[in-house]
């Protein structure tokens, strides 16, 4: 049986803006197992990034983690709640045990420093290396690991001297420099072209196998999910709609939203006469719909859906859904 490395429970984050309280995510719960690739999918604004950032308290004002627990299973088997740690303690975890890769490689790198410097810095901060000198030496290794040709010279390059794909490799290099146990990749390929995306995804798979890292992959691209993930959580308007293995989600989607989403994607390898679109738009999270947040767009909505918030129920082993139909 797989053992969890991260248990997220009732995670709730609100943003206190002038327009009102944005209930960005509410009561998000799921487990991430050791060594797996866990995908978090959903449309823009559904709370994927906020969820992943909340793990290590990376929520900036006006946001606040209102409640919830993020139980992290350490290497030695002990557990801690990441949300209970103070700033100093959480910084020791962030970047070392739980590392992030963000969407835009241009914004993630500092244009004023060489890529070697930036990778070395990540290690120096966490004392993974003795000094800067060792850091630079290691940086060359890391560039080699992320398959950058000619790493000895590339290490001295500034970000603007690299292509978009190369930059994202460097960002990944920075992420894995401390051999993190959990790597959170937030839309790592959204800004890239398909051919480059394929290379980056392959690289992440390779690294994951080599170091047995747990990968939390955030994306809105169902194709990427199908290619990469072991298990999937589908989010809608700040809540988890469905969790299951890739096969469960793709072959037996239970939630009407998941079903709609899958039917709305034009699959290039299939012959599609007509896409099924989901009517309506994503709701405003300041005053989300009562009951199930999907009910205004749902073809099967009933009275219960309008009134009661559906709970996450296990329908088959490992397959959870939050829907009144089940």
């Amino acid at each position: 049986m797989s053992e969890p490395i991260l248990e997220v429970r009732d995670l709730t984050v609100h943003f206190y803006t002038y327009a009102g309280i944005v209930k960005a995510i509410e009561d998000v719960s799921f487990d991430v197992y050791k060594g797996e690739t866990f995908a978090l999918v959903g449309e823009t604004g559904c709370g994927k990034s906020v969820t992943s950032r909340a793990f290590t308290q990376l929520i900036e004002s006006p946001g606040r983690i209102v409640k919830g627990k993020v139980i992290y299973h350490k290497e030695d088997g002990s557990t801690i709640d990441l949300l209970k740690l103070d700033e100093e303690e959480v910084r020791k975890i962030r970047g070392k045990e739980v590392a992030y890769i963000f969407q835009d490689p241009h914004a993630s790198l500092d244009p004023l420093y060489t890529v070697g410097h930036q990778i070395a810095e990540a290690m120096v901060v966490h004392n993974t290396v003795k000094d800067w000198k060792e850091g630079f030496r290691k940086a060359v290794d890391i560039l080699r690991r992320v398959l950058i040709p000619d790493p000895e010279n590339r290490v001295k390059n500034y970000p603007h001297e690299l292509s978009g794909g190369m930059k994202q490799r460097v960002v990944i290099g920075t992420g894995i420099s401390n051999n993190p146990r959990i790597l959170i990749a937030d839309e790592p390929t959204t800004a890239l072209d398909v051919t480059v995306q394929a290379q980056i995804l392959e690289l992440m798979n390779k690294l994951k196998r080599e170091y047995n890292t747990t990968l939390i992959l955030i994306t809105h691209n169902m194709g990427v999910v199908a290619e990469m993930a072991d298990r999937v959580a589908v989010m809608y308007a700040g809540k988890i709609a469905e969790i299951g293995s890739v096969d469960q989600i793709f072959k037996n989607p239970l939630h009407p939203y998941t079903q709609g989403l899958l039917r709305a994607v034009p699959n290039p390898l299939a012959k599609i006469e007509r896409l099924d679109a989901i009517p309506g738009t994503v709701p405003n999270l300041i005053k989300p719909p009562k009951g199930c947040r999907f009910h205004p767009r749902c073809p099967h909505a009933t009275e219960a859906c309008r009134k009661e918030v559906p709970k996450l129920k296990e329908i088959e082993p490992g397959h959870f859904v939050a829907c009144h139909l089940y």
């Binding site: 292509s163 978009g164 794909g165 190369m166 072209d193 398909v194 051919t195 480059v196 995306q197 394929a198 290379q199 995804l201 392959e202 691209n221 169902m222 194709g223 990427v224 999910v225 199908a226 290619e227 990469m228 890739v246 096969d247 793709f250 072959k251 899958l262 994607v265 699959n267 290039p268 390898l269 299939a270």
Partner: peptide, 24 residues
Amino acid sequence: SAIPVPDPDLARELKAKRMNVEGE
């Protein structure tokens, strides 16, 4: 061969015979 297909079975099948995607 670089497009990710939204179908896990097909993805696994294709993975084996994928063309090597190189360069930018």
